[in-house]
Simulated scan of single mutants.
Amino acid sequence: MTTMSRSFGRSDLANGAHRDVAIWLLACCFMVAVMVLLGGLTRLTHSGLSMVEWEPIVGIVPPLNEADWQLFFAKYKQTPEYLKVNAGMSLADFKGIFWLEYIHRVWGRLIGMVFGLPLLWLAFSGRIGKAMIPRLVGVFLLGAAQGGMGWFMVKSGLVDNPAVSHFRLTAHLALAFLIHAWMFWLALDILADHRPSPRRLHGEAGGTMSWLAGLTILVVITLLFGGLVAGLKAGLIYNTWPLMDGAIVPRDLFPEGFISLFEDIKTVQFGHRTLAEVTIVVALVGWFRARARLGAQTPAAIHAVGIMALVQVGLGIGTLVMVVPVSLASAHQMGAMALLTLCLWAIHDLRRRI
């Protein structure tokens, strides 16, 4: 029996409420995934700095007339992005970047409502056990922190340099992945607690679990470096693979020592692509070993991880060599979320079988 089984008993989920809770959490996971997609599109289309104020309540109301639009546009004209990049932009062009950022922000508020209101009802109606409430409140607080982090990120691009801090962008992305992963894991726990135990695996499943844990850590580190690459726009240079600047290991890496791994564009890109290459090797070797160990008993989740790893590295190479087209870059970002999600599913499924 899982830990969640002990702390989230069946008596706490009478009349099928457990299914409702799990489905609700999975729906919120989907909404977070859409939020990540919108955030990526906002960044790739340079729309993220079009709204220069953060008003969590009244900010949900868009410009409703010409006077409103002129007011929003006048505020944007005072930003470094307008002065240094988009000087002379028309109001029509401004509307184009404004709406994407507006939808991104409103979607975030909608997630808060879709998560927060049902949480209150579930808690006060007794449909969830006391042990689950702190976990769900923790998710909600992370969501609130994510909203604050988003504005903290945007503020960094409204001062002198018309680009947000790549550290803040990475933190914003990491929080989104953490929220998604936490809700997904809770949903899996709830569903598993109310399903018959699957058939036990024979063979050396322990080694497969260690591989999955290590792979998940690699995926997380790689996607964090992906955030740094995105924030530094490091994908717009050295657009060849497998060689980078004409070599497997290019010259002039780490010009300022260890800190270059986080701040030097060339070193950051090299770090991300090297991590991705290590990740795909670990994924494929582990996948083939798992199949050899477990044979026909290999869970579908493990096959999904191996296939998604191949898809993700293909999307990454394509994004690089085609110089970051919006469609491929967005797909690559969502591929990272899909791969992490599948790793969690595989780990959760395997631990019930061993």
Rank of each mutant, 00 (worst) to 15 (best):
G206E: 11
G207T: 06
G207L: 02
T208N: 08
T208W: 07
T208G: 06
M209A: 15
W211D: 09
W211H: 09
L212E: 09
L212N: 11
G214Q: 10
T216H: 07
I217K: 09
I217L: 15
L218F: 15
L218K: 09
V220E: 05
I221A: 12
T222F: 02
T222E: 13
G226I: 07
L228V: 13
L228D: 07
G231A: 03
G231H: 03
G231V: 02
G231T: 01
L232F: 05
A234W: 01
L236N: 07
L236P: 06
I237E: 10
I237Q: 07
Y238W: 09
N239Y: 11
T240G: 11
T240V: 11
T240A: 14
W241A: 15
W241K: 07
W241C: 08
P242E: 06
M244K: 12
D245M: 09
G246P: 07
A247E: 08
A247D: 04
I248K: 03
V249N: 01
P250Y: 14
P250S: 08
P250C: 14
R251V: 07
R251C: 04
L253W: 04
L253E: 08
F254V: 04
F254H: 05
F254A: 08
G257N: 04
S260W: 09
L261D: 11
F262Y: 13
E263V: 00
I265P: 02
T267P: 03
T267V: 00
T267M: 01
V268C: 01
G271H: 00
H272S: 03
H272I: 02
R273N: 04
R273T: 00
T274G: 02
A276Q: 03
A276H: 01
A276L: 02
A276S: 14
E277A: 04
E277G: 02
T279F: 00
